[in-house]
Amino acid sequence: MANHSITGKVVLIAGGGKNLGGLIARDLARHGARAVAIHYNSASSRADAEATVAAIQAAGAQAVAFQADLTSAGAVEKLFKDTVAAVGRPDIAINTVGKVLKKPLVEISEAEYDEMAAVNAKSAFFFLKEAGRHVNDNGKVCTLVTSLLGAFTPFYAAYEGTKAPVEHFTRAASKEFGERGISVTAVGPGPMDTPFFYPAEGADAVAYHRTAAALSAFSRTGLTDIEDVVPFIRFLVSEGWWITGQTILINGGYTTK
């Protein structure tokens, strides 16, 4: 029987410098990970990434951080190779990278579409590819998507449309990697109370989202709190290994599929 505990494991988190990714990194370090490698996108996130590294180290785990734009296959490959060189082959690989665009479909430019596809779909595809090449047998792979995959709504065509392929990537990867004991999942949180959410939304939309979930009245903000998402991801990359090939929406009853 494989060991599905987090204790002693090596973790790689894309987008792990801050917000949900940073909280996952800190949480897995507190739950016994031996080493956590985090990725951050740009120099503007460096300070947050360094704070996350310090928190991981304070929890007793080894920590490293790498800056990269993961919209090229080569950059994703380098991230995995750098992680292996620094802390060893990962047992757990989590991709939280994403970009939101809220805009009428008829107003979306080709350049905007290409950027959304590169960040949300292309980077996820090559993250799964490199995870399949580098993650240890009996490992765990998880990608963040969005609860809008269960929605019937305007203005998010480029966002939910470029996250949707990750469901298919996840199913295929789960079948291909399953013979090595690797589970592959996707997690779709509802609108989260992070700086990632607010720039795309007006005041009216924020007010709607704060009341849209069945359990909104019991949430601190009415939105999905990242603290409520982390335990599910921890479960999926440990004892929840038998769940694979699935997209799980964690949103307090915001949408369903």
Rank of each mutant, 00 (worst) to 15 (best):
D114K: 11
E115Q: 11
E115V: 12
E115D: 12
M116I: 00
M116C: 03
A118D: 08
A118G: 09
A118Y: 10
A118T: 06
A118C: 11
A118Q: 05
A118K: 14
V119I: 12
V119Y: 01
N120V: 07
N120T: 10
N120E: 04
N120M: 09
A121G: 13
K122W: 04
K122P: 07
K122A: 08
S123R: 05
A124F: 10
A124K: 07
F125A: 02
F125S: 01
F125Y: 03
F126I: 05
F126D: 01
F126G: 02
F127R: 01
L128Q: 06
K129A: 09
K129I: 03
K129N: 04
K129W: 01
E130F: 10
E130N: 13
A131P: 01
A131E: 00
G132W: 02
H134D: 00
V135C: 01
V135W: 00
N136D: 13
N136I: 07
D137E: 15
K140D: 03
K140L: 10
V141D: 00
V141W: 00
C142R: 02
T143Q: 14
T143R: 10
L144F: 13
L144G: 03
V145L: 11
V145Q: 09
T146E: 01
S147L: 05
S147I: 04
S147C: 06
L148A: 07
L148W: 08
L149K: 08
L149M: 08
L149S: 08
L149F: 07
G150S: 12
G150F: 06
G150C: 06
G150V: 05
G150N: 08
A151M: 09
A151P: 10
F152K: 11
F152E: 11
F152P: 08
F152A: 14
F152N: 11
T153C: 13
T153K: 14
P154Y: 03
F155C: 09
F155H: 09
Y156I: 15
A157E: 06
A158K: 04
A158N: 10
Y159M: 09
E160S: 13
E160T: 04
G161E: 12
K163Q: 03
K163S: 02
K163F: 02
K163A: 01
A164S: 13
P165Y: 05
P165Q: 15
P165S: 12
